[in-house]
Design a protein around this nucleic acid. Sequence first.
DNA 1: CGAATAGTGTCTATAAGACAGTATATC
DNA 2: GATATACTGTCTTATAGACACTATTCG
Lengths: 218, 218
Amino acid sequence: MKKSRISVAVDLLVFTIEDNRLKLLMVRREEEPYKDRLALPGVFVGEEEDLDAAAKRGILEEAGLKDIYFEQLYTWGGIDRDPRMRIISVSYMALVPLEQLNYSAGARTTEVLLLDVEELLRGEAEEPAFDHKEIIRYARWRLMNKVEYTKIAFHFLPEEFTLPELQRVYEILLGKPLYKANFRKKIADLVEETDRYTEGDAHRPSKYYRLKEQEKNV
Amino acid sequence: MKKSRISVAVDLLVFTIEDNRLKLLMVRREEEPYKDRLALPGVFVGEEEDLDAAAKRGILEEAGLKDIYFEQLYTWGGIDRDPRMRIISVSYMALVPLEQLNYSAGARTTEVLLLDVEELLRGEAEEPAFDHKEIIRYARWRLMNKVEYTKIAFHFLPEEFTLPELQRVYEILLGKPLYKANFRKKIADLVEETDRYTEGDAHRPSKYYRLKEQEKNV
DNA sequence: CGAATAGTGTCTATAAGACAGTATATC
DNA sequence: GATATACTGTCTTATAGACACTATTCG
């Protein structure tokens, strides 16, 4: 039976929303190749480690995050992805509310930063290492798609949120403005109201909602 | 840098439609483990081989097929998937019109057969080896989903087809009957008519259509 | 009261669903 | 003409889109 010299890694795409922009967590490489360049955080998969477990570990080690939503995206297996050796990379997408993000808690000493995804894809930011720009482009496309037919957008928000906040998340992910009344009709069945309201703003307060329990796993 | 003992394989889900049923190509294993059990065809990924290239090679070697539609599905990485060793398996789904399927042409001497997917998933057929039943269930789910929002169904038919044939493919994949008039309205913009008709049937002939050129890559 | 944002009612346009009818082959 | 399947017209229902209006807070 074959014993391959192929290494398997997971690359992590940790998305969040900051200042009404979609942001992605990236790290600055401290080693060759691509030293000092921006790259997706990632870890090698242990010989006795589930793929999902490796992703979970990576999210904890690189972003200091536990118990957040993640899903497998795609597996990248080009021959020359990494100049050192053959690496198959299984990409995972994780979504997290900004409040929960605490990337200084990562075990690694690398510099960790949040990049504006649209700027990055338009080439207005630093060019990412490896084939990571392509991976990011794919993830952004999948995210945009899934917003339309899943409840994925909710993962960017805390347990309780206002409908204007939720609408803003949808607008950012879809890249276009939505009509308030229509948006509320569409998501009405997914959410349930709380009895809390926003306070202190110089305008009408907004009611807090949460995702209905029975909608969480549908 | 780590040198892992993880092997990478691709598992192939070659779907076709026969006798108005969704069928899947499977092989009978000639070696332990799971000797004589049904399994998905698959190949190990070479150290100097692209992932997609490995899938393409597998489709050729195991099913004798060239130039057919395929796409990556999901990567399975549980620890105990294979009792011999750690294998990460990247699954690929391929779709082929029955007319084109010629599985006796596979290089391997293994027995190759077409299984009814619904029967298999309901447990009315032989139980597949490894975690292949789970993979099949996932692929069937993805296929069903993609029918609704992509043109994936066309890959089960030859270049030219009648609308009743196309409708039958949709019905098989969706698992429910569709209204003729409504179906035709929905796909009207995707197809263009030819000047050929079915012949010899004891009823009104049916016009042949083909997928519009500009729709092929959308 | 003005500014700012939250929230609702309703009209219109488009798509999905259901059904009934007509058309054209073979035997 | 009987049978079998291909094809079309149209009514109904549901959903998406657009816009105007009312509501409530702070300063």
